[in-house]
């Protein structure tokens, strides 16, 4: 392709005397005046795609390897451990802060619990005192009631004793009267009042009357 261009260009420049194609691909035309004109210089200009100019490959590969080695060194020795440490430290700080917050929350919980406990204790104490007071009052009351009961019982017993005495006396009187009346009746009827039967009959009858 380069040759075609050279020829086309030479046709376009009819005042050339001679055409020299050098070994490294440069074409030099010589004009009538003896001046040299560079027509094609493959030497300075890469042909076609620069990406396919294999002459520059060793250079690019060499510098790429140097670059990658430098970046790898920078990253693995300095940057990555540092960033990793910073991130870990931040994570640690956050964890610590969360732990501290948790701790404080726990303390607050404990304080609340202690307050609740104190409150409950006080309430229990007050209840205990109230119960004690009530129990004392109850005891006094019980004692008074018992005493009153005992008085009442004693008095009742006394009264019953008197009533019993009166009743016995009355019963005895009734028996006496009954016997005397019976003797009198027997005498009036013409019987013998000293008869033992009379005595037992009166007693027999009186038993049913006696309460």
């Amino acid at each position: 392709m380069a040759k075609d261009i050279v020829l086309a260009q030479v046709e376009g420049q009819p005042d050339l005397d001679a055409l020299i194609v050098t070994e490294d691909g440069a074409a030099i035309g010589v004009t009538e005046g003896g001046e040299a004109v560079v027509l094609v210089d493959d030497h300075a200009e890469a042909p076609g795609m620069p990406q396919l100019n294999f002459e520059t490959f060793p250079n690019q590969i060499f510098w790429l390897v140097v670059t990658l080695a430098a970046i790898y060194y920078l990253l693995s020795r300095v940057a990555l451990p540092r960033i990793g440490a910073v991130l870990a430290e931040r994570q640690g700080t956050i964890t610590n802060d969360i732990a501290a917050a948790e701790d404080l929350r726990q303390k607050a919980d404990e304080a609340e619990k202690a307050y609740d406990k104190a409150l409950a204790d006080a309430r229990a104490e007050s209840q205990r005192i109230a119960a004690e007071g009530r129990a004392e009052v109850q005891r006094d009351l019980d004692k008074a009631i018992a005493k009153a009961d005992a008085d009442i019982a004693a008095r009742t017993a006394e009264s019953e004793k008197e009533i019993a005495a009166i009743r016995d006396e009355a019963a005895a009187s009734v028996e006496q009267v009954a016997r005397e009346a019976a003797e009198e009746i027997v005498r009036v009827l013409g019987g013998n009042p000293e008869d033992a039967d009379l005595e037992s009959a009166v007693s027999e009858r009186m038993r049913g009357v006696r309460v």
């Binding site: 140097v66 430098a70 990253l75 300095v78 940057a79």
Partner: peptide, 21 residues
């Protein structure tokens, strides 16, 4: 490539030299 290395150096090494939380 040298500029690339310098930029990476600036970002990842100089940028993190404070090690700030």
């Amino acid at each position: 490539m040298a500029i690339t290395v310098l930029c990476i150096f600036a970002l990842l090494v100089l940028g993190t030299r404070g090690r700030a939380i």
